[in-house]
């Protein structure tokens, strides 16, 4: 169970199972008849990204996180102008900007790579006894999602060249805890 304290009420939607970026038309090309017959111009061979399985989540920056044992009252303060970032990991040589751009279109237009505080944000919280190591962090409500990248050959055969997971912020910066 995770809790997040929010300065603003988040009404982020939960999206499951959606596949973005690769349109159904292109998908049908993969499984369709001989592309040389039905796709006389072939498929574009540029790298394409897709994001899927997006889920609303509190996104925190590990470098803006404080943690402690039960009974310890944690505190954190971030001055105005402090920037925190989401994380994108995975295989292949990927472009974070391309993944973010795809997530903006397919998941939530508010998604971004990083957020900057415009006021001083601070908070404190006591780690309860049922958590072995609780945390308090600067972050924002955002999304956890899977991503993949690849390209079509000239004969419209899809080849995946990378995949991974992204945690990207979307709403205003807040202080959250475990």
């Amino acid at each position: 169970m995770r809790r997040a304290i929010l300065a603003t009420v988040a009404s982020a939607s939960v999206m499951l199972g959606g596949v973005f970026g690769i349109g159904s038309a292109q998908a049908s090309q993969v499984n369709g008849p001989q592309p040389t017959v039905n796709q006389p111009d072939g498929c574009p061979t540029t790298t394409e990204y897709s994001v899927y399985n997006s889920l609303s989540s509190f996104v925190r920056d590990a470098s803006k996180t404080v943690y402690g044992q039960p009974g310890v009252t944690l505190s954190i303060s971030a001055a105005s102008g402090t920037t925190f970032s989401g994380t994108v990991g995975g295989s292949g040589s990927f472009s974070i900007d391309a993944i973010v751009a795809d997530a903006k279109i397919g998941v939530d237009s508010s998604i971004t790579k990083s957020k900057t505080t415009t006021v001083t944000l601070g908070g404190s919280w006591t780690v309860p006894s049922n958590q072995s190591l609780g945390w308090l962090a600067l972050g924002s409500q955002g999304y956890k999602m899977n991503w993949s990248m690849g390209h079509y050959s000239g004969t419209c055969v899809w080849s995946q060249t990378g995949s991974g997971t992204a945690l990207l912020p979307a709403l205003a910066p807040v202080i959250g805890h475990s």
Partner: peptide, 9 residues
């Protein structure tokens, strides 16, 4: 038990 402080810039 959590408190949140938002101060002006």
């Amino acid at each position: 038990t959590a408190s949140l402080v938002v101060a002006a810039a």
